[in-house]
Amino acid sequence: MSDFSQSLSVSASGLKAQATRLRHVSENIANADTPGYRRKSVQFEADYRAAAPRSQVAEVKTGRVSLDPSQLQEIYDPSHPLAGDSGHYEGSNVNLIVEVADAREAQRSYEANLKMFDQARQMARGLMDLLRR
């Protein structure tokens, strides 16, 4: 695999991983008010198998999706259908500030991978233009 195609595949794997992360962040934000919902997070892993043999370059792949084990928020609303005898029910453990920060980080990482992809493409185009002369 050439260096150009390897750089394209590495940045494409980063784009895919950040898109997956952003999808889970948006699910968390959408379900922030859902009773009993637990925050989802995705882990990233290095994938050396997709790279060339004896290469130090690894692609990014997403690992398991894990649920946040932290305590669910106790909400007092005796009129809610899920409320117990004490008038409390379990809300979600989604913190919107954390989700917005994660969304920004994923967006910036996505943009960085997109810029790397575009730079490799422009370099390949420049090389082809030089070879045609």
Results as ranks from 00 to 15, higher is better:
77 D>R: 06
45 E>M: 13
55 S>Y: 10
71 Q>L: 07
45 E>L: 14
45 E>S: 12
72 L>C: 02
82 L>Q: 11
56 Q>L: 14
74 E>Q: 14
79 S>T: 15
62 T>V: 14
60 V>W: 05
58 A>V: 07
64 R>C: 00
55 S>T: 11
77 D>I: 07
51 A>I: 10
45 E>K: 13
69 P>C: 05
54 R>S: 10
45 E>F: 13
64 R>Q: 14
72 L>W: 02
64 R>G: 11
59 E>Y: 13
65 V>T: 15
83 A>E: 05
76 Y>S: 08
67 L>K: 09
57 V>T: 15
46 A>S: 15
79 S>W: 00
78 P>E: 00
76 Y>D: 08
56 Q>I: 10
82 L>W: 02
47 D>K: 10
78 P>H: 01
52 A>G: 11
81 P>D: 06
71 Q>T: 14
50 A>Y: 07
54 R>E: 12
66 S>H: 12
60 V>R: 06
55 S>K: 09
75 I>R: 00
63 G>L: 08
69 P>Y: 06
44 F>N: 09
51 A>H: 08
72 L>R: 04
72 L>Q: 04
54 R>F: 11
67 L>I: 01
69 P>H: 04
79 S>Q: 13
46 A>T: 12
45 E>G: 02
46 A>Q: 14
46 A>R: 15
49 R>E: 14
77 D>M: 03
50 A>Q: 14
71 Q>I: 08
63 G>V: 06
73 Q>A: 11
62 T>H: 01
70 S>I: 04
62 T>S: 12
62 T>K: 02
78 P>C: 02
45 E>N: 12
73 Q>H: 11
79 S>N: 09
81 P>Q: 08
73 Q>L: 12
47 D>F: 10
52 A>Q: 11
78 P>S: 03
61 K>L: 03
50 A>N: 05
65 V>C: 02
58 A>K: 07
75 I>H: 00
51 A>D: 08
75 I>P: 01
65 V>D: 05
81 P>R: 07
58 A>E: 07
51 A>E: 05
66 S>L: 15
71 Q>D: 12
68 D>C: 04
79 S>F: 05
46 A>L: 13
53 P>D: 03
69 P>W: 04
